[in-house]
Amino acid sequence: MVKYQNANPGDSLDRIFAALADPTRRAMLARLSEQHDLPVSTLAEPFAMSLPAVMKHLDVLSGAGLITRSKTGRTVACRLSAGPMEEALAWLTRYQRFWTEQLDRLAAFVEEDACPKSPASPSSGGSTRRPPKSSPRGPTRRK
C-alpha cells in the first residue's frame, strides 16, 4: 500500500486517485454512499480480510479526505465526504472536454474524407493480374 508523506496541496489529487484505484476502497465508498454513518465492523463485513487490513484501507480513504470518522463510545463510524471527489471530477472534466473536441474534429475529418468530391472514373479496361501464390514451405526442423 502506498503511503504519502508530503502534505503539498498539489498532492491531494494524487491521494484521491490512489485511494480510488483500489476496488476494495471503491466498494467501501459505494456502501457509504448508500448508508450514512456505518460502523467500521459493519463496513468490514462483506470483505474477506482482517479488521487491521480494513483499517488500513480506511486510513487511505481518510488521508485522501474521502471519508470522515467519528467515535461514539467504543464505536467508530465512517461517513462519505464527497468534496474531494468534486476536485477529481473537475480535473477529469477538463480532459473530457479536450478529448471530446479532438474526437469531434476526427469525426468531421473522416466524414469529409469519406465523401468523394468527383465521380469515380471508369475502369481503364482489363483487369490486373494477381501476383503468384507463395511457394510451398520448406522442410521444418524437428526437435
Rank of each mutant, 00 (worst) to 15 (best):
T140A: 14
S62G: 12
R97L: 08
S41A: 00
A48L: 11
E45I: 04
A18T: 11
G10N: 11
T72F: 07
S121F: 00
T42H: 08
M55P: 11
I67N: 02
L106P: 00
R31M: 15
F47L: 13
D14A: 07
K143L: 10
P23L: 03
E87Q: 13
L92C: 09
S50P: 15
G83W: 05
I16F: 07
F109Y: 15
E111S: 04
A114M: 12
A19L: 04
A7H: 12
V2F: 09
W99M: 03
T93I: 10
F98L: 09
W91L: 07
E87W: 10
W99F: 13
P139W: 11
P46Q: 02
M85T: 02
G65A: 00
C115G: 02
R31G: 08
L29F: 11
S124D: 10
V110M: 09
H57T: 02
S41G: 03
C78A: 07
D113P: 00
P39H: 01
Y95P: 03
A27S: 13
S135Y: 12
A114C: 10
P84T: 04
H57G: 00
A114R: 09
I67W: 05
P52H: 02
S41R: 06
R74G: 10
P23G: 02
G126W: 07
K3H: 06
R97H: 08
E101V: 03
G73I: 15
Y95G: 03
D22H: 06
E112R: 12
Q102R: 10
E111C: 01
S135P: 13
R137Y: 14
E112G: 02
S62H: 15
H57S: 01
F98P: 01
R94K: 09
A21C: 04
R25L: 05
P136F: 11
T140K: 14
A48F: 13
A44W: 06
S81L: 11
P46S: 05
R94W: 05
S81A: 08
E45H: 10
P136Y: 12
R94N: 00
S41H: 03
A53M: 09
M28L: 10
S62C: 10
R141L: 09
S12H: 15
R15G: 00
L38P: 08
N6T: 01
M85E: 00
M49W: 11
P136E: 10
A108Y: 08
I16Y: 12
A7T: 14
S134M: 10
R94L: 11
D104T: 13
W91D: 14
L13H: 14
R129E: 14
E86D: 06
M55D: 13
L106H: 05
K56Y: 12
V40W: 01
Y4D: 09
K71A: 10
Q96A: 12
K3Y: 07
R105S: 13
T24I: 13
S134A: 06
L51M: 10
T128R: 10
T42V: 12
E111P: 01
R79F: 07
L13P: 11
K133A: 05
A21F: 00
S134I: 05
L103W: 04
S124E: 09
R25Y: 02
G65S: 04
R31S: 13
S123C: 08
G10M: 04
Y95E: 12
D113W: 04
S123D: 12
V76M: 03
A44Q: 08
V54K: 07
P84S: 08
A27L: 14
T75D: 07
P9K: 09
A7S: 13
S121R: 07
L89R: 15
